[in-house]
Amino acid sequence: MHRIAVFSASRDSVRDGIASADVGDRLQFWIRRDPDGAVEYAGAIHGGVFSRFDLGGPDQALIEVHYRIGVLLRARFGGLAARAELYHVSSHLGDEFLVDSGVRPISTSREGLEFLLQGSPLPGITVYGGPGVLLRTSRDLDRLSLRAGADWESSPAAHARFYASVDLFTWAESEWEPALATELGAALGRGARLGLLFGLGPSRAEQFFRESERLLGVTISYVR
Protein backbone atom coordinates (compact mmCIF):
# COMPACT_ATOMS: atom_id res chain seq x y z
CA MET A 1 0.00 0.00 0.00
CA HIS A 2 1.14 3.56 -0.78
CA ARG A 3 -0.22 6.31 1.45
CA ILE A 4 0.23 10.04 2.06
CA ALA A 5 -1.34 11.55 5.18
CA VAL A 6 -1.53 14.90 6.95
CA PHE A 7 -2.53 14.78 10.59
CA SER A 8 -2.31 16.30 14.05
CA ALA A 9 -0.28 14.24 16.50
CA SER A 10 -0.59 14.73 20.26
CA ARG A 11 2.25 13.02 22.10
CA ASP A 12 3.14 13.58 25.76
CA SER A 13 1.37 16.96 25.85
CA VAL A 14 3.06 18.07 22.61
CA ARG A 15 0.89 18.68 19.56
CA ASP A 16 2.48 18.72 16.11
CA GLY A 17 1.31 19.00 12.54
CA ILE A 18 2.81 16.02 10.76
CA ALA A 19 2.83 14.60 7.26
CA SER A 20 3.61 10.96 6.59
CA ALA A 21 4.59 9.16 3.42
CA ASP A 22 4.41 5.36 3.36
CA VAL A 23 5.52 3.31 0.38
CA GLY A 24 5.16 -0.46 0.47
CA ASP A 25 4.78 -3.23 -2.05
CA ARG A 26 5.45 -6.90 -2.63
CA LEU A 27 7.14 -8.80 -5.43
CA GLN A 28 5.66 -12.25 -5.90
CA PHE A 29 8.24 -14.87 -6.81
CA TRP A 30 6.19 -18.07 -6.58
CA ILE A 31 2.54 -19.12 -6.88
CA ARG A 32 0.78 -22.46 -7.24
CA ARG A 33 -2.96 -23.11 -7.56
CA ASP A 34 -4.95 -26.29 -7.86
CA PRO A 35 -7.11 -26.61 -11.03
CA ASP A 36 -10.37 -25.45 -9.41
CA GLY A 37 -8.67 -22.51 -7.60
CA ALA A 38 -9.78 -23.59 -4.11
CA VAL A 39 -6.20 -23.99 -2.84
CA GLU A 40 -3.33 -21.59 -3.48
CA TYR A 41 0.27 -21.29 -2.28
CA ALA A 42 2.38 -18.17 -2.86
CA GLY A 43 5.65 -16.55 -1.86
CA ALA A 44 6.68 -12.89 -2.08
CA ILE A 45 9.29 -10.37 -1.00
CA HIS A 46 7.61 -7.59 0.95
CA GLY A 47 9.17 -4.18 1.69
CA GLY A 48 8.28 -0.68 2.75
CA VAL A 49 9.55 2.75 3.82
CA PHE A 50 7.52 4.70 6.42
CA SER A 51 8.43 8.32 7.14
CA ARG A 52 7.16 11.33 9.10
CA PHE A 53 7.83 15.03 8.45
CA ASP A 54 7.41 18.05 10.73
CA LEU A 55 4.92 20.49 9.17
CA GLY A 56 5.39 23.00 12.00
CA GLY A 57 9.08 23.66 11.31
CA PRO A 58 10.46 26.04 8.68
CA ASP A 59 11.98 23.23 6.60
CA GLN A 60 9.36 20.49 7.09
CA ALA A 61 12.26 18.34 8.30
CA LEU A 62 12.23 14.58 8.37
CA ILE A 63 11.34 13.40 11.90
CA GLU A 64 11.68 9.65 11.58
CA VAL A 65 11.94 6.94 8.94
CA HIS A 66 11.83 3.21 9.35
CA TYR A 67 12.35 0.42 6.86
CA ARG A 68 10.81 -3.03 6.76
CA ILE A 69 11.69 -5.86 4.41
CA GLY A 70 10.61 -9.47 4.62
CA VAL A 71 9.89 -12.77 2.94
CA LEU A 72 6.23 -13.70 2.96
CA LEU A 73 4.73 -17.19 2.50
CA ARG A 74 0.96 -17.55 2.11
CA ALA A 75 -1.46 -20.46 1.80
CA ARG A 76 -5.18 -20.15 0.98
CA PHE A 77 -7.78 -22.87 1.44
CA GLY A 78 -11.11 -21.65 0.14
CA GLY A 79 -12.04 -18.56 2.14
CA LEU A 80 -9.38 -19.07 4.82
CA ALA A 81 -5.75 -17.95 4.41
CA ALA A 82 -2.64 -18.24 6.56
CA ARG A 83 0.62 -16.35 6.14
CA ALA A 84 4.04 -16.22 7.76
CA GLU A 85 6.51 -13.36 7.33
CA LEU A 86 10.19 -13.31 8.27
CA TYR A 87 11.08 -9.60 8.46
CA HIS A 88 13.76 -7.04 9.33
CA VAL A 89 12.98 -3.56 10.71
CA SER A 90 15.34 -0.62 11.29
CA SER A 91 14.62 3.02 12.13
CA HIS A 92 16.38 6.41 12.09
CA LEU A 93 15.69 9.98 13.21
CA GLY A 94 16.13 12.79 10.68
CA ASP A 95 19.38 14.77 10.98
CA GLU A 96 17.73 18.20 11.25
CA PHE A 97 15.22 16.92 13.78
CA LEU A 98 18.07 15.48 15.86
CA VAL A 99 19.90 18.83 15.88
CA ASP A 100 16.80 20.93 16.62
CA SER A 101 15.23 18.70 19.26
CA GLY A 102 18.22 17.14 20.99
CA VAL A 103 16.32 13.84 21.15
CA ARG A 104 18.55 10.81 21.56
CA PRO A 105 17.92 8.12 18.93
CA ILE A 106 17.17 4.59 20.06
CA SER A 107 17.99 1.41 18.21
CA THR A 108 14.98 -0.79 17.43
CA SER A 109 16.68 -2.84 14.73
CA ARG A 110 15.28 -6.36 14.87
CA GLU A 111 14.30 -9.48 12.98
CA GLY A 112 11.16 -11.43 13.69
CA LEU A 113 8.41 -13.77 12.55
CA GLU A 114 4.74 -12.82 12.28
CA PHE A 115 1.91 -15.32 11.71
CA LEU A 116 -1.58 -14.25 10.61
CA LEU A 117 -4.82 -16.07 9.88
CA GLN A 118 -7.26 -14.30 7.54
CA GLY A 119 -10.87 -15.03 6.66
CA SER A 120 -13.95 -13.43 5.11
CA PRO A 121 -17.03 -14.22 7.23
CA LEU A 122 -19.27 -11.94 5.14
CA PRO A 123 -19.00 -10.47 1.61
CA GLY A 124 -16.75 -7.40 1.64
CA ILE A 125 -15.39 -8.07 5.16
CA THR A 126 -11.94 -9.46 5.93
CA VAL A 127 -10.73 -10.23 9.44
CA TYR A 128 -7.22 -11.22 10.48
CA GLY A 129 -5.11 -11.87 13.55
CA GLY A 130 -2.12 -13.71 14.93
CA PRO A 131 1.07 -13.61 17.03
CA GLY A 132 4.58 -12.35 16.38
CA VAL A 133 7.92 -13.25 17.92
CA LEU A 134 11.29 -11.48 17.72
CA LEU A 135 14.26 -13.65 16.76
CA ARG A 136 17.03 -11.04 17.16
CA THR A 137 17.13 -7.48 18.46
CA SER A 138 19.80 -4.79 18.76
CA ARG A 139 18.73 -4.32 22.39
CA ASP A 140 16.95 -6.39 25.01
CA LEU A 141 13.37 -6.06 23.75
CA ASP A 142 10.49 -8.28 24.83
CA ARG A 143 9.82 -10.75 22.06
CA LEU A 144 6.07 -11.43 21.88
CA SER A 145 3.40 -9.37 20.09
CA LEU A 146 -0.14 -9.72 18.73
CA ARG A 147 -1.91 -8.14 15.76
CA ALA A 148 -5.60 -8.22 14.79
CA GLY A 149 -7.89 -6.22 12.57
CA ALA A 150 -10.69 -6.04 10.04
CA ASP A 151 -11.33 -4.39 6.66
CA TRP A 152 -14.64 -3.67 4.94
CA GLU A 153 -15.39 -2.33 1.46
CA SER A 154 -18.85 -1.85 -0.01
CA SER A 155 -20.00 -3.68 -3.11
CA PRO A 156 -18.13 -2.82 -6.35
CA ALA A 157 -21.54 -2.60 -8.05
CA ALA A 158 -22.57 0.39 -5.93
CA HIS A 159 -22.41 3.89 -7.46
CA ALA A 160 -20.37 5.12 -4.48
CA ARG A 161 -17.99 2.75 -2.70
CA PHE A 162 -16.92 3.17 0.89
CA TYR A 163 -14.42 1.41 3.14
CA ALA A 164 -13.50 1.09 6.80
CA SER A 165 -10.58 -0.58 8.55
CA VAL A 166 -9.33 -1.14 12.07
CA ASP A 167 -5.89 -2.47 13.07
CA LEU A 168 -4.82 -3.33 16.60
CA PHE A 169 -1.20 -4.04 17.57
CA THR A 170 0.02 -4.87 21.06
CA TRP A 171 3.54 -5.74 22.19
CA ALA A 172 4.98 -7.06 25.43
CA GLU A 173 7.69 -4.34 25.26
CA SER A 174 4.89 -1.74 25.60
CA GLU A 175 3.34 -3.72 28.47
CA TRP A 176 0.59 -4.90 26.09
CA GLU A 177 -0.87 -1.40 25.76
CA PRO A 178 -2.82 -1.56 22.47
CA ALA A 179 -2.00 0.68 19.51
CA LEU A 180 -5.23 1.28 17.60
CA ALA A 181 -5.50 2.66 14.05
CA THR A 182 -8.84 3.16 12.30
CA GLU A 183 -9.66 4.58 8.90
CA LEU A 184 -12.95 5.44 7.18
CA GLY A 185 -13.45 6.86 3.70
CA ALA A 186 -14.43 6.52 0.05
CA ALA A 187 -12.93 4.44 -2.74
CA LEU A 188 -12.21 6.82 -5.61
CA GLY A 189 -11.31 4.28 -8.27
CA ARG A 190 -9.56 0.99 -8.70
CA GLY A 191 -7.42 0.86 -5.56
CA ALA A 192 -7.49 4.62 -4.77
CA ARG A 193 -8.91 5.78 -1.43
CA LEU A 194 -9.54 9.05 0.43
CA GLY A 195 -10.12 8.69 4.14
CA LEU A 196 -10.03 9.95 7.71
CA LEU A 197 -7.47 8.40 10.04
CA PHE A 198 -7.64 8.09 13.83
CA GLY A 199 -4.92 6.47 15.95
CA LEU A 200 -4.52 5.95 19.67
CA GLY A 201 -1.95 4.25 21.91
CA PRO A 202 1.80 3.66 21.62
CA SER A 203 3.32 5.43 18.63
CA ARG A 204 3.65 3.48 15.37
CA ALA A 205 6.80 5.54 14.71
CA GLU A 206 9.62 3.21 15.72
CA GLN A 207 11.73 5.87 17.47
CA PHE A 208 8.79 6.91 19.69
CA PHE A 209 7.18 3.53 20.43
CA ARG A 210 7.45 4.14 24.19
CA GLU A 211 5.35 7.32 23.92
CA SER A 212 1.57 7.30 23.68
CA GLU A 213 0.06 9.47 20.97
CA ARG A 214 -3.24 10.44 19.40
CA LEU A 215 -3.51 10.94 15.64
CA LEU A 216 -6.25 12.58 13.59
CA GLY A 217 -5.89 13.35 9.90
CA VAL A 218 -6.64 12.85 6.23
CA THR A 219 -5.15 10.12 4.05
CA ILE A 220 -4.81 9.43 0.35
CA SER A 221 -3.81 5.86 -0.42
CA TYR A 222 -3.50 3.31 -3.17
CA VAL A 223 -4.11 -0.35 -2.36
CA ARG A 224 -3.06 -2.91 -4.94
Results as ranks from 00 to 15, higher is better:
11 R>I: 12
15 R>V: 15
15 R>F: 02
24 G>Y: 00
25 D>C: 05
29 F>C: 08
30 W>H: 13
30 W>D: 06
33 R>K: 15
33 R>L: 10
34 D>V: 13
39 V>N: 14
43 G>D: 03
49 V>E: 02
52 R>P: 00
53 F>W: 13
54 D>K: 08
62 L>A: 04
63 I>Y: 02
63 I>H: 01
66 H>Q: 10
68 R>T: 04
70 G>R: 00
75 A>N: 09
79 G>T: 12
81 A>E: 14
82 A>W: 06
82 A>C: 10
85 E>Y: 00
86 L>H: 08
88 H>N: 08
93 L>G: 00
93 L>C: 07
93 L>V: 11
94 G>V: 06
96 E>P: 01
106 I>N: 04
108 T>Q: 11
109 S>C: 03
114 E>Q: 13
115 F>K: 01
116 L>M: 11
117 L>R: 07
117 L>E: 06
118 Q>E: 15
120 S>V: 04
123 P>M: 09
125 I>Y: 08
128 Y>F: 15
133 V>N: 03
141 L>T: 09
142 D>H: 15
145 S>Q: 11
149 G>R: 04
154 S>I: 09
156 P>W: 09
159 H>C: 07
162 F>W: 14
163 Y>N: 05
164 A>D: 05
168 L>F: 07
172 A>D: 15
176 W>P: 06
176 W>N: 10
177 E>N: 11
181 A>N: 12
186 A>F: 10
187 A>N: 05
187 A>I: 14
189 G>F: 08
192 A>G: 10
192 A>S: 13
195 G>E: 03
199 G>K: 02
203 S>I: 06
203 S>P: 05
204 R>L: 02
204 R>Y: 05
205 A>H: 02
205 A>F: 10
205 A>G: 14
209 F>E: 12
213 E>H: 07
218 V>Y: 02
220 I>G: 07
